[in-house]
Design a protein around this nucleic acid. Structure first.
Lengths: 339, 339
DNA sequence: ATATTTTGTGCAAAGGTTTGCATAAAATTA
DNA sequence: TAATTTTATGCAAACCTTTGCACAAAATAT
C-alpha cells in the first residue's frame, strides 16, 4: 500500500483533488465545512504532501549544499553546525558534502549538487583548488554560491572570510615583543589561500621588525594533520640553529610541535614559544596550554548562511557581491611568553 | 531561461520526448543515428535530467538520512565520514542531521526525514531518548532504520553497536591489576545506553575483584563535554578520601580530569590513574598521554551503511534484523600504570 | 421576479520523466 | 508480390501537487 495522496482523500470525500489541496493550504474560498472535513480526514489518514511533486512543480529543491574539505576537525564541524542552526527554522535542507581536500572530488560534488538542483551552495574549497570554473558554471546556471573561510581569488561571489593576515601578523608580533628572535613558521599546504595569508602575515611581521627571514624556518606541511605536524616539527627543531619560537598554521600542527619539543626536552615557553591558529577546544587542555588565534567560527557559518538565504528569498536580485571579513583574536596561554 | 528539458531536445530534433528518453538511457530499440543525434545535442545543450521528476516517478528520493547527537566530536564526525565514503559510489545521497542530544529535536528530525521521503535512516539516538515510537512509525511506513552506537532497547531494528561493557570491564580491571584500589567512574548522562553499559562494566569489574563499590565514586556528568568534566572531576578529586584512579566515560571527560588533577598537583599516574574512552586523535598528544578504549569507528559507520544499503537494494526483504557488536581495544598510555 | 454579485467547487494544464502499448515503416521470408 | 517479422518511433498515462479559469449555485441588490 503506497502513501496516501491528495487524490485518495478527494475520492473518499467525493470532491476534486484541487479542493482538497486548497482546503489543506487554507485557501480563502473554501467552505468551512469542506475545509474541516478535509483536514480531519487528512489528519486521520496521516496524509503528508509529496515533496517531490511540489518540488517538481515549483522547480525548486529547497536544498542547500555545503562543501567542506572534511568534517573531522572542530573548525569545519562547528561551521556546519552553525549553518544548520541558521537553516533550522527555514524550509531549506542542508546537504553536507566532504571534498577530502581534493580538487577532483570537489568538482564531482559540485556536479552532484547541480544534478540535485540545489537552490544554493556554500563552499570552502579544497587546498588543491585554484581553478574556479566549476563554481562559475554553477553561478551561470543561476545558483548562488557563497565562499567561506578560504578565498577564491578571481572568483566573483559572495565571500565570508577571516583576516588571517592580521591574525597571523599579530601573533608573530607578539612573539617578537616577548623577546623571540628566531621565529619559525609551520605553514600549511602550499596552495591554500589561508596558508598564503598566514605566511604573509608572518613575513610582514618579521620585516616590520627588521628580523631577517630565514628560509629554513619556513616549512610547509603536506597536510593539516597531527602526523604531518610531527614530521615538520622534527625537521625544524633538529636544525643546528633551531628556532626559539614556532608559529603554526593551525592548532593541530602546533600541538604536534609541542609534543616534539617535549620529547626533545625543549622547555616551553622558556626555550621555545609556540602559537597555533583556530583555538580548537582541546588546545586549552594541552600542557602547556596552547596560545592561539581564535576565529569567530559561529559568526562565519551564520553569516554565510544568512547571505545565501538572502539570495534565495530573492530580495536582492542584482546587488553586488558581499565581501565580509572577520577579525581574529589572539589568545595567549602557557605555550608562549606573555610580555 | 529555464533548464533544458528532454522536450526541448525532442522539439529541436523533431522526435518525441520518449524517443529522447530512450536514446539517453541507451534503450535497445533506437536507431544508431537517432541515438547519436540525441546524445550529441544533449551534450551540446548541457542537458541534465531533472531528478525531481524522476524521483516523483519512481516514488523514491534516493536520500538516506543520518541523525547524530552532534558532529563536533571526532567520534561522530568520523562515523559520518565513513558513512559518506560507503555511499559515495552509490546513487544515494546522505542528509546529515544533528539532534543536539535532544529527544524533541530528534523527533522533529525524523518527521522532517519522513517528509523528505528518505529511503532509509541511520540513527544514533540522543542521550535523552528512551521512547522509540518515532522510529517505529518510520519502520511502519516501510522505511528501514539502522541504529548504531547507542542501543534502543526494545526496538526491533538492525543494530550496529560496540561492546562497551567489555571495553569498560577490561579498562577497569587493568586499573585494578596495576594496583589501584579506589577507582572512581565519571559516568555519562544517566539515560544513555552507552553510559549504562560502561557503568555496568565498571561495577562488574569491581565486584569480580571484590572491591567495594562506593557511591561517591560514581559521578554522572550532565553532558559529554570538557566543561561538564571539569566540574565533575573537581567534585571527585576534592573528596576527603579521594580516588586513586578515574575511569571516564569518554576522552573529553578524562582530559578534563587530567587537567583538574594537574591543577591540584596530583601526580599522574603515580597518585592517580586516568583512563578514557574513544581514543580521540588529540588524546595521544596530551601530557600525560591518555590511556583509553578504542572503538572501531570506521567499521561501525561502514557496516551500518552497508546494512542499510542491503535493505534498499531489496535483496533481503524478510530477513530478521541484524545485531552486530564490535569489540573495543584497550590502549595503555602514560595516564595509567602499566602492570 | 429579474439582474448582479458572491461563494464554493471542478476542470485541466503544468512541472519533467519513464514506459507499456500501438503503429508505421522497413526488412525479411514465403 | 504478398505475407510476415523486425525495427524504430510516437502516444498517452502515470507519478502528485498547485493554480488560473470557468461555472453552477446561492445570496444579494434592484
Amino acid at each position: 500500500m503506497g502513501r496516501i495522496t491528495i487524490t485518495d482523500i478527494a475520492k473518499k470525500l467525493k470532491v476534486a483533488p484541487s479542493t482538497v489541496s486548497r482546503a489543506l493550504n487554507n485557501h480563502a474560498s473554501i467552505s468551512e465545512k469542506t475545509k474541516n472535513d478535509v483536514i480531519a480526514l487528512a489528519e486521520k489518514l496521516n496524509y503528508e504532501p509529496n515533496i517531490m511533486a511540489i518540488n517538481l512543480l515549483h522547480r525548486k529543491s529547497n536544498l542547500i549544499g555545503v562543501i567542506v574539505p572534511h568534517i573531522t576537525s572542530h573548525f569545519y564541524s562547528a561551521i556546519i553546525t552553525s549553518i544548520q542552526d541558521m537553516l533550522s527554522n527555514t524550509t531549506f535542507n542542508l546537504m553536507v558534502c566532504i571534498s577530502n581536500e581534493s580538487f577532483e572530488e570537489e568538482v564531482l560534488l559540485i556536479q552532484k549538487l547541480e544534478k540535485l538542483h540545489v537552490d544554493g551552495v556554500l563552499i570552502c574549497t579544497s587546498s588543491e583548488t585554484n581553478n574556479f570554473d566549476h563554481l562559475k558554471k554553477m553561478q551561470n546556471k543561476g545558483i548562488p554560491v557563497v565562499v567561506f573561510d578560504r578565498d577564491c581569488s578571481g572568483l566573483k561571489a559572495d565571500k565570508v572570510l577571516v583576516d588571517c593576515y592580521s591574525g597571523s601578523f599579530e601573533a608573530v608580533e607578539s612573539l617578537i615583543q616577548s623577546g623571540c628572535k628566531k621565529i619559525a613558521h609551520l605553514a600549511g599546504p602550499q596552495n591554500s589561500s589561508t596558508t598564503k595569508q598566514r605566511l604573509n602575515g608572518y613575513l610582514d611581521a618579521l620585516k616590520k621588525n627588521k628580523i631577517p627571514i630565514i628560509k629554513e624556518y619556513i616549512h610547509h606541511v603536506s597536510e593539516f594533520t597531527f602526523n604531518s605536524g610531527i614530521k615538520a616539527s622534527e625537521v625544524l627543531l633538529k636544525l643546528k640553529n633551531s628556532p626559539d619560537a614556532i608559529f603554526a598554521v593551525n592548532d593541530n600542527i602546533a600541538i604536534a610541535a609541542i609534543n616534539v619539543a617535549k620529547k626533545m626536552s625543549i622547555k616551553i615557553p622558556e626555550e621555545l614559544s609556540i602559537v597555533g591558529f583556530n583555538d580548537d577546544p582541546h588546545s586549552s587542555f594541552m600542557t602547556p596550554s596552547l596560545s592561539t588565534v581564535l576565529q569567530p567560527i559561529f559568526s562565519i557559518g551564520m553569516l554565510s548562511a544568512r547571505i545565501l538565504l538572502h539570495h534565495l528569498k530573492g530580495v536582492n536580485t542584482k546587488i553586488e557581491f558581499r565581501h565580509e571579513v572577520f577579525k581574529t583574536e589572539l589568545i595567549i596561554r602557557e605555550s608562549s611568553k606573555f610580555l
